[in-house]
Design a protein around this nucleic acid. Structure first.
Length: 457
RNA sequence: GAGGGUGUAGCUCAGUAGGUUAGAGCGACAGUUUGUGGCACUGUAGGUCGUGGGUUCGAGACCCAUCAUUCUCCCCA
């Protein structure tokens, strides 16, 4: 036989039965909590119009969008036009004649598009959740793929901080259910804006957040270097260093932040937001899990208010979730002034964390419960009838596919982790009985075929 | 976009300073006498060493290219 040369596209994966079951366990947990909090599901197509996606993720993001080549490019009547258009593609531009669709890059923009298209029909605030794969033409590496799932929950059409409280409780509930110990780190983009205001003006906000975001990775000295490179002077850098050095309990941090940036209007507002959510959460979840982290910035520039990031305790792993408030998600699609707030779960990383900490329950391995041995034609007919009877009572079973030596059938049961074997040979056939063997303990007993069902109920 | 690592049996990998018939473990299959597995033992199958060039008397080992894969940086989940 020729050697198979089949392979998978870079950065994609097959999921075996065991992995799918474990992933579904995570998905189901998240989905149940979303539903519990009043979020409704939404699914959007794998592909969007290229126009919908381009320009929404920044210059870098645009490059990482998977574009779909149009069909019918081989139509002779269009060759001249397409050659001309293809020249534009070579220059880095996109033309509708060559490509006009692309794979979904995230769930947020398709959601914004959906809200814009259906704004009139939506009951506000609109709370939806979405669990679907997205695709990015990124270089794959550890924990990064070209196809991966996102789990998002967003509320649009409400500025109430109650939404932030709800979302942080969703985080707490999901991770408590999964058994993962986490810190829910929070900060406010308003505080960062106030800091920027004091240090060089609002236009430095992006520079400052980008540099601050790297603190954990590169350390304070490098951050200072980067800030200097980005044009901040020494006094400003000292202020930022003071800001980043804020430490202690949540209360102490808030006090220190107030002292530093409380005079700025937005700084005050940011501190008040955080106070609000901390007070509220005390009533509902374990407050100690919410931790103020003033170094938290999050890369995405559309965040404007409170921001979240989830860090699992006890493992070396990047954030396993994040989110925040944004002011105007749908403005780009012609429906302005729709504020919102959303969170996201990083399922692939959550999976890795649970694997590492061995948190998956035994029950996720859900195979068939019974294997009927096949010991001959008449024997297997009897077994088949009994098997159907069990199936009708919601007991999963299989009949071995051919009459062969028992050793093989035992090994099959072992490999598929089937806990019970039912043996019907010529002797049992004659007596109207069957042998039930517990394959874990090795114990077995003979019962009447008519009594088999009640043995399993 | 930039820079490393790795490609040898189905899987995980050995293959010493280039030398003749390329190995192991696991897995698969068969058997250790025909209705009781997981163990053990025996045996069998399976590789033009990613691909294409080059150096050499001789290349799985060295050089170049190419493809694949993996990791790091950028960016992100």
């Amino acid at each position: 036989m020729a050697k198979a040369t089949v392979s998978l596209p870079q950065g994609t994966r097959d999921f075996s039965a065991e992995v799918v079951r474990k992933r579904n366990y995570i998905f189901n947990t998240i989905r149940n909590v979303f539903e519990l909090y009043g979020f409704a599901p939404l699914e959007t197509p794998a592909m969007e119009n290229l126009d919908t996606l381009m320009g929404k993720y920044g210059e870098e993001g645009d490059k990482l969008i998977f574009k779909i080549l149009n069909n019918g490019l081989d139509n002779p009547a269009k060759h001249d036009q397409i050659r001309t258009d293809f020249e534009k593609v070579l220059e880095g531009k996109n033309t509708k004649n060559v490509t006009e669709r692309a794979l979904r890059y995230d769930l947020t923009i398709p959601f914004a598009r959906y809200v814009a298209m259906n704004y009139g029909q939506l009951t506000l605030p609109f709370k939806r959740y979405q669990i679907q794969p997205v695709w990015r033409a990124d270089r794959p590496q550890k924990g990064r793929y070209r196809e991966f799932y996102q789990c998002d929950a967003d509320v649009v059409g409400s500025t109430s901080l109650l939404n932030e409280v709800e979302l942080s409780n969703i985080y707490a509930t999901v991770f408590a259910t999964l058994g993962i110990d986490v810190e829910i780190r929070i900060n406010s983009r308003k505080i960062l804006a106030a800091l920027a205001e004091i240090c060089g003006g609002a236009d430095k906000m992006t520079d400052i957040t980008i540099a601050i975001d790297k603190l954990n990775k590169i350390g304070i000295e490098k951050v200072k270097e980067e800030l200097a490179q980005r044009g901040l002077d020494e006094t400003q850098i000292i202020t930022i260093e003071k800001y980043l050095a804020i430490d202690g309990s949540n209360e102490e941090k808030l006090a220190a932040a107030t002292a530093l940036i409380g005079n700025a209007e937005r700084g005050k507002a940011g501190v008040e937001e955080i106070e609000y959510i901390l007070n509220y959460s005390q009533l509902i979840t374990n407050n100690s899990k919410l931790i103020i982290d003033f170094t938290l910035a999050r890369g995405l520039n559309y965040y404007t208010g409170l921001i979240f990031e989830i860090k699992a305790k006890g493992v070396q792993m990047g954030s396993i979730g994040g989110g925040g408030r944004y002011d105007d998600l749908t403005g780009l699609f012609g429906v302005p002034n729709v504020p919102g707030v959303g969170i996201s779960f990083g399922v692939d990383r959550i999976y890795d964390v649970m694997e590492e900490l061995e948190l998956f329950p035994e029950t996720v391995h859900k195979g068939v419960k019974v294997l009927f041995f096949n010991l001959g034609e008449q024997e297997s007919k009897t077994a088949f009838a009994l098997m159907q009877q069990l199936r009708n009572n919601n007991i999963g079973c299989e009949l071995f596919h051919e009459a062969t030596k028992m050793e093989k059938q035992f090994k099959y049961a072992d490999k598929k982790q089937i806990p019970f074997a039912i043996i019907i040979g010529s002797k049992e056939l004659e007596e109207g009985t069957c042998v039930i063997k517990n394959l874990v303990s090795g114990e077995q007993k003979t019962v009447l075929q008519t009594a088999l069902l009640q043995e399993f109920s």
